[in-house]
Write a protein that binds this DNA or RNA. Structure first.
Lengths: 373, 373
DNA sequence: GGCATCTGGTTTCATGGTGAAACTATGTGG
DNA sequence: CCACATAGTTTCACCATGAAACCAGATGCC
């Protein structure tokens, strides 16, 4: 369609991305940021405004002299996207606009782990979200926990118990194109990069705390492909407990929800859920506090290792279990400082609480970024 | 001068870099690799050949039909560079050509750690190397161990005991421009990137073993700025020995030459130098073998952590003490596997033996890369 | 030998993106 | 009312680019 031809232009996309990421701005500001002349910027934005992708906001007065500026903004509803996140138990879907604002949510139980049933269930979720949309959905993003190869194949997903499933193609036959498949943490990272705490920096890392420990990395504005939860098995204490893979005292032995619950349940003599454990720690129950503090210390250590090895300016902590960073901030800090060389660089980890809808929003971010390469 | 104007053109630089990094190639091949048309390539190389920066080699026949190709090569002597590496004891200088081939070497003892005396000594080394050059030196690169800020200031160098010394400007007054200042490991990384094992990959990491543990990172063909030896203080075993900064069982407690010598000397009841220790381990002396094996295991762990957190395809091990990787390969492998999740990715670390001249060559690489941004 | 064919490399030419500069628009301050 | 400052537009000359036609050199087949 016509608007697509317009967006073929690299500079047009750069303008749209700049506005998406850094908010509405007058043409003069965009020209400076993108390093082009005002003439070029006028030229490139004209068709975008004409086709309704961008709109001029009301005149804004800056102190001092000079003409008022007319900030350009994207029209959020100019594009709609769908994001779907698969877990072992449920399928979370969201319909979002260009700014990744959630317009609708759909959650269904995972029917089974059989591929064709999952395909059918995802298709159903996407179709229901499509029905709620006021305009055609421009792209669909799907994310799964586990290794995804080339955006095509789920090489290995411990949660879904899948191996080498060409999921994207199978799903695209039902859902249609464009359909993007990615790792769930990659999606979350892309969402943070454009719409979250990663907007203002060139480099950042993201750690997720929950069933496993997830890890995403952005260097120089690009998502760096990393592999299955490399942080999960960082050494913390070689005399510590064993994790499921038989590593002694690795990160996941302290920080994964399963390990934390197992440790606390054994010590307390009764079964504890993850939420109960965190709630007990909030109330300063001694055993829960100890388990959560050790987890926070391990997380702090992970942040220190990640920041030092990658040189990132910012680190984002998130995931279902990130509350533990708020419950035991001093333990987090202890872990960060344990192996630091010299004075600590002023990188306070950003804590972003989240729920499962946020994962689906990450999947949508994959779709959004795909439209603005 | 004229040739400089020629190299202003971004594409001309890209051609020169392509040939420097991947060797002489015919125009057709260069056009394909750089993603431009043959027409453009002819145009952009014409002035380079005319000014003598590039030369056509003899016609090369490829099997099958078609016209022979005329590979273009850089004229190594078209540019000369000087690289200088400062250590606490000595100043190492090299004169190199465009391919970073060493033409001359100069080594002098560090007069003192007083800044003005170091400036004078470096100036002297550079001038002596200039005198040996058959053409004007195009740029000078200087590297130091420690933190360098913005290519200007030595923020903190434990070896030189300097803090916030505006070394580049001070030195440039004597030596002249262009003068580049950088961290020593960054220089080594840049040398490997263009002229060593990093040539063929987009991402790699480099670890140096010696007095400290150095760390360099290249992601997507760009050197990522990291901070002072972040690897030095990775945790290995929280019940292990203390390092100088008071960390229990960190990398440098196992892997730095000082810590290794101290441990071995104490166990053997006599003072051992680093070289003696490594030589003893080569002869399978039990105590030395144990110390070196533990160091190799720690190094293996470091490689595993680095590869998993950065996703690099290749890791280069080097430094004065890298022999230990060859003395205890099985311990290196043990360390790599200790905390791996699932099957190990096929990344065998590349071991590159080196001496101090190699450090100076790294400094020269900083100068060379500066001329081809 | 003659000719088709293949690849390397060059020249010509039309195209399209670009910024400098001049210009209009809209505001403040004297 | 005029000087000035900033935003945004239009004009115009420039130049890097690739498509296409073309030349150069080599092979293989008839």
């Amino acid at each position: 369609m016509a608007t697509d031809e317009v967006e073929q232009h690299a500079l047009a996309r750069a303008v749209a991305v700049e506005i998406l990421v850094h908010g509405p701005q007058p043409r003069a500001s965009l020209a400076r940021r993108l390093g082009v002349s005002p003439a070029t910027l006028t030229r490139v934005t004209r068709p975008l405004v004409a086709t309704g992708v961008l709109v001029e906001g009301g005149a804004i007065r800056t102190p001092g002299r000079g003409r008022s500026s007319l900030p350009l903004d994207v029209v959020p509803d100019a594009r709609h996207f769908v994001g779907v996140k698969l877990t072992r138990e449920s399928i979370y879907g969201v319909l979002v606009d260009l700014r990744a604002q959630v317009l609708h949510t759909e959650v269904v139980a995972e029917p089974s782990l059989a591929v064709h049933e999952v395909v059918a269930a995802v298709t159903d979720v996407v179709n229901r979200l499509r029905a709620r949309s006021t305009r055609p959905v421009d792209a669909v993003g799907v994310t799964v926990g586990g290794r995804v190869d080339g955006g095509e194949t789920v090489t290995d997903s411990p949660f879904l118990e899948w191996h080498d499933v060409p999921f994207r193609t199978l799903l695209a036959k039902e859902v249609g194109e464009p359909l993007l498949l990615a790792n769930d943490v990659v999606g979350l990272t892309m969402a943070q990069q454009w719409f979250g705490y990663g907007r203002t920096v060139a480099d950042f890392a993201l750690l997720t705390v929950g069933a496993g420990v997830g890890y995403g990395l952005v260097i120089d504005h690009r998502v760096v492909p990393t592999y299955v939860s490399p942080v999960s098995h960082l050494p913390v204490d070689p005399s510590g407990p064993l994790c499921r893979l038989g590593h002694r005292g690795c990160m996941s032995a302290y920080l994964s929800s399963g390990a934390m619950c197992a440790t606390a349940s054994e010590a307390l003599g009764r079964e504890l859920s993850y939420d109960e454990l965190l709630a007990l720690a909030e109330q300063r129950e001694p055993v829960a506090t100890r388990v959560v503090s050790e987890a926070a210390r391990a997380l702090g250590l992970a942040t220190a290792v990640v920041t030092s090895l990658t040189g990132v300016e910012r680190i984002i902590l998130t995931g279902e279990g990130v509350r533990l960073a708020q419950i035991a901030p001093e333990a987090l800090r202890t872990g960060r400082l344990a192996y630091s060389a010299g004075p600590l660089r002023p990188i306070d980890p950003v804590v972003m609480p989240m729920d499962f809808v946020e994962w689906a929003r990450g999947a949508a971010a994959v779709a959004i970024q795909h439209r603005f390469p």
